[in-house]
Design a protein around this nucleic acid. Sequence first.
DNA 1: ATGAAAGCGCTAACAG
DNA 2: CTGTTAGCGCTTTCAT
Lengths: 367, 367
Amino acid sequence: MSRSPTPKRRATLASLAAELKVSRTTISNAYNRPDQLSAELRDRILTAAKRLGYAGPDPVARSLRTRKAGAVGLVITEPLTYSFSDPAALNFVAGLAETCEETGQGLLLVAVGPSRTVEEGSAAVLSAGVDGFVVYAAADDDPFLELVLDRQLPVVIVDQPPEVPGASRVGIDDRAAMRELAEYVIGLGHRDIGLLTMRLGRERLSEAERQAALVGPDRLRDTHFRAQRERIAGVHEAMAAAGLDPEKLTIVESFEHDSISGGTAAELALTTDPRITALMCTADVLALSAMDYLRARGIYVPGQITVTGFDGVPEALKRGLTTVVQPSFEKGRRAGNLLLNPPGSGLPVLDILPTELVRGRTAGPPG
Amino acid sequence: MSRSPTPKRRATLASLAAELKVSRTTISNAYNRPDQLSAELRDRILTAAKRLGYAGPDPVARSLRTRKAGAVGLVITEPLTYSFSDPAALNFVAGLAETCEETGQGLLLVAVGPSRTVEEGSAAVLSAGVDGFVVYAAADDDPFLELVLDRQLPVVIVDQPPEVPGASRVGIDDRAAMRELAEYVIGLGHRDIGLLTMRLGRERLSEAERQAALVGPDRLRDTHFRAQRERIAGVHEAMAAAGLDPEKLTIVESFEHDSISGGTAAELALTTDPRITALMCTADVLALSAMDYLRARGIYVPGQITVTGFDGVPEALKRGLTTVVQPSFEKGRRAGNLLLNPPGSGLPVLDILPTELVRGRTAGPPG
DNA sequence: ATGAAAGCGCTAACAG
DNA sequence: CTGTTAGCGCTTTCAT
C-alpha cells in the first residue's frame, strides 16, 4: 500500500510524453486505445506513469474534450431526510443507481432541498458536471426545474410535474390507481372517509407550522404536487361515481415524513369527523404511522377503522396493509434507461408503469 | 415553461461576448464577480444570455480551469442492493449527503459493486470528476481502494480498512463495543453462543454458494473486513476473559442481506450446536431476520434464545433489540467534514465515534 | 470597469 | 503505429 512520492507538480499526459519522448497522442492511446500501439510501448508507458504517479487522463479535461461527463444528475427537491426515509423514494434511487452502475455512469446527487437558498441550489444545478438530469417528484412550480431545463441537457421527469416540453416522463396512473382503491373501500360499505396526504405545496414552513392540517377547498385547488392531486382526484371520482358527495371527504395534509406524522394526521382527521370509518393515505409511510397510532389507542384495524396506503413498500406488505403497489425500483431503472439510451426517434416518451391493488388485511366493512 | 429555440451551436461565453461586443472576461465577471461590472451591463449580459439560451459558464470547463469539481465521490464497493437495504449504510449516506448539501457540493455515487468487472469499476473511479473520495466499508484487499489512492485526491476511509497512509479515517471501536455486549450476554449466564456475521471475504459467489456457511478457523483467519473481524474478536475476548473457550463460539457467515438471510444463518448455527442459548449478530438486519425466523418456529425471545444485534437501526430499536447503537448518520457527516474542511494540520485524522450499548428486551438469562 | 493573452489537460482528425 | 495541429470553454493575472 505504498505510494510513490508526490511530485512537485502533478504529472500530466504531456509531461509523461515529454519524459518518454513520445507524442501526447501515444500516451492518450495507451489509455484509450490499447490496440493502437505495441504492447511493449504501452507497458513502458504504464510503468513510467506509475513511477511518476500519473493515474491516467484527467477526467475533467477529458470531459471537456469529449463533451461527456460520464454521470447523470439526480435532482432531489425534497429535504434529504425525505428521500432517505421513504422506502419508495429510496427504491427509486436504487433502481436509477442500478442502471447507472450497469452502464458505468456515475450518479450525482444534486441536493436542492429547502435547507439551501434558491441561489445556492441554483449553483448546485448549474455546476453539476453531468450528461443529463433526472428530476424526481418536483412540484409544478419548482424553481429548480426551470434551471435544469436551462442547461439544455436531456431530462427525464419522474412522477411529476406533468408535461415538460422536450422531457421524457415516467410515472404511474396515480388517479386510476387511487380510484380503484377507493372503489374497493367504498364497495366495502364505507361512506365516511378520511384522506391523509403528503404536503400539497412547497412553501417553507417553520417547525411549528409543520403540524398536520385540514385541507380546505382553497388549499386543495392550490395543490402543487401532481401525484397528490391526482390521487385525491381518484378518491373524489370514486365517491362521485358511488353517489357520495366528494365534498364530504375529510382531507388532512401531513408536512412531515417521520414515524409519528401519520398518526398525528389520523388523529386530526378522526377528531374533525368522528364518523370516519376508513382512513385512506396517499403513502404507505403515512398509513403505517397511522396504524401505529390507532393501535396505541386500542382502535382495531380493520374492525373499527379501515386503513389503506399507497406505494407498496416492503414493510407495508409485510404488515398486510391494503395498498397500491407501484414499481418504484423499476421507475428508477426506466428513468435511467430513458436518459442513457434515449429512444431512436429522439422524441420525448411518456412511460406509464402498471400498479397493482393489493387487498391486505387492513380493510374491511365499517365496524 | 417555454424555452428559447435551441441555437444550432450551443452558446458559449465567447459567443456571447462576440454578440455583445464585450470581452470574455466581462461575461465571466457577470457570473462570477457581479461587483466587477456595472449592474446595468450585467443585466444586459444576463438578458442576452437568456435570449441565446446560455445557461452560464460550462461547469466542466470551469472545473478544468479552477481545478475544482464541486463534488465528492462516494465509492461503494458493495453491491448496490446492500447499501440500499441496510438502514445503517443508508444513514451513513444520508449524513454524508447532508454535509455535501450544506456546503453546496454534489455527491457522486461511484458504484463499483461486483456486478461490474474490475476494469469497468476502474473506469468509473478514474473518470469521476470529484475533489475527493469517501470510501465506505471496503475490504482490506479491495482493488478499488488502490485506484482511489492513485488519483492523488483527498480520501476519507470509513469503518475499514485500517491504516491507509495519508487518508483520514472515521469509525467506531468495533471491538470494544462488541466485547461489552458479549460481556453483558455472558454475564446473563450464557455459555453457548452463536455468532452470525456478514460476509468475511470479497470473493464473488454464485447464487448457490451464497448460502449461510459455518466459519472455520481458516476462514476466520482470512477475514478481509476489518469491522467484522474486530467484532468477532470482541466476542472472543469477552469469552476468554470469562474463562470460556473462544474456540467453542459457533460462527456463521451470511452472504446475503435480505429479510430471510439472518434466519437461514440462525438455523445453521442452531443446527450446528443445539445447545446455543444466545445468538449474537454483527448487524441488526441479521438479528431482526433471525428473530423473525425464531418466532416462526415458535421459539421465544428472550425466553428460550437471546438475540443481540449491532448498529441500532430504527426498526431494531423499535422492536426492542438488545444491540450496540452506533452513530451512522454522524459518521457520514464527519466523513464529509473531514474531506471538505480538512484539519489545518493537513495530517490525516483518526476519528473514533462513541457507541452505546442498548439493553433491549431480547436478551435474558438462558432458558 | 474592461480587455488581451495564456493556458488548464486532454482527444480527435489527419497525415505520415 | 506515431506525431502534428487544433481546439473543448473557461478563468485569471496583468494591463489599460
